[in-house]
Design a protein around this nucleic acid. Structure first.
Lengths: 230, 230
DNA sequence: CGCCCGTTTGAAATAATTCAACACCGGTGG
DNA sequence: CCACCGGTGTTGAATTATTTCAAACGGGCG
């Protein structure tokens, strides 16, 4: 939900029939290949999308925070083309296909919001292709951290350093590197005093510096803001 | 336009005000950063999207054929986050923002078709992230060729081998490799009798074999078919 | 306390890039 | 018509980035 919704539209979404579910860390919300005809709104926690290659390598495709809708495409395309998994324990509200479709038909504002959401998501995918395809290891990791921090900022979740509930292996799978190499790249960034790590928390010591190191420009996020409190 | 449109919807699209333009190879249809408020329908020829990194490296993001709409996002997001360029000489019909928006409002079928188009596009981006992030050079190139061939097939353009108006440098920029390495990988695929090259044309000698070599499964294209003759 | 998962570090191996030279082809101008 | 030119393709050798393998370490949790 990346567009300002009217009060009525917001209320209409809330009145949709939905089942709330709590899911443990690393459980699957959606599996690739599955015929999925629902769409979930992430109430709390963090999820990520992934795809596996024929030889079993994993690529993480995106990370999504509370307030974001997961898998609009399943409502429209039917067959899931990737997995969605819980990065932390999460709470999601699952909405069946039919009522969502009729709501979109009845309320153009909501249809518009869905479209905006998908368009911005596509823009982020494009940036990830660039990141993984054409930047060196250090830059990739820095870029990943920048996007992560930027989005958490937008949610107001940044108090006292960023919670970073991802393993280095997961950062690797998101950036197309190995966990070992991610470790070394993080070390480099820390050496340069751009970040500081402690446990599962990290601090950005030099925002501008990290943006430069990560070739990061937030334009591709299109000022993405989240509905937030649903 | 990836959904079957009704006859009336099709007619409505054709009645949109549009300016037809012919553009030479390698000219820009859209530039990153530009405030673009139109959307173009590709009548003939091939275009590609690209983004440049801070150090000037290029990543190609997609290749689009006739019948596909380019840059819906500009109509909705305003600021172009990537370039669109002509791979061959092309003819495009450019539609201004306002009439497209009001048509979408008036005709839910068209709004739906736009959404489908964007969703499928996003699915293809996801697959590209996997390709570039987690597959080896030979597999990447083979995958690229598979997608290319699959889409040309869908358009019925495959008579007597595939026209391949891309340079090896462009294949490299699409797969995150250097032109030199692409050359070697193409050589490998040819050695294995999966493809044959001659001039700007190439033949797939072993479709199944190339699919295997490229870890290719067309599911992510979601049976994408194009309106074709607009 | 001990175990497991994730991190850290080093060294060797591999994949891909870089640099450089040359061949090829189609097109242009003399 | 030919000669030349620029862009593209091809090949080899040296270099670099990243992976792989392996071992040790550390903290949180049962």
């Amino acid at each position: 939900m990346h567009a300002r919704l009217s009060v009525e539209d917001g209320a209409a979404i809330l009145s949709l029939p939905s089942t709330e579910r709590r899911l443990a860390r690393s459980s699957y919300l959606v599996r690739e290949g599955e015929v999925a005809t629902t769409c979930s709104l992430l109430i709390s926690g963090i999820v990520y999308r992934q795809k596996l290659t024929g030889v079993g390598a994993r690529q993480i495709l995106s990370i999504n925070f509370r307030g974001e809708a997961i898998d609009f495409q399943n409502v429209f395309l039917g067959n899931a083309d990737h997995d969605v998994r819980a990065l932390t324990s999460v709470v999601v509200a699952t909405i069946p296909r039919a009522p969502l479709l009729s709501l979109m038909k009845a309320r153009p504002g909501i249809a518009h919001a869905v479209l905006m959401s998908v368009l911005i998501e596509a823009s982020v995918f494009r940036e990830w292709i660039v990141n993984v395809g054409r930047r060196g290891g250090e830059v990739r990791v820095a870029h990943f951290l920048c996007e992560y921090a930027w989005r958490m900022d937008a949610l107001g979740l940044e108090k006292n350093g960023y919670e970073l509930p991802v393993t280095q292996e997961q950062i690797g799978d998101a950036t197309g590197l190995t966990a070992v190499h991610v470790n070394r790249m993080l070390g480099l960034l820390e050496e340069k005093k751009l970040i500081r790590r402690e446990r599962h928390r990290f601090h950005i010591l030099d925002v501008t510096g990290l943006h430069e190191a990560g070739d990061f420009n937030s334009a591709y996020l299109h000022g993405q803001t989240i509905l937030g409190d649903v």
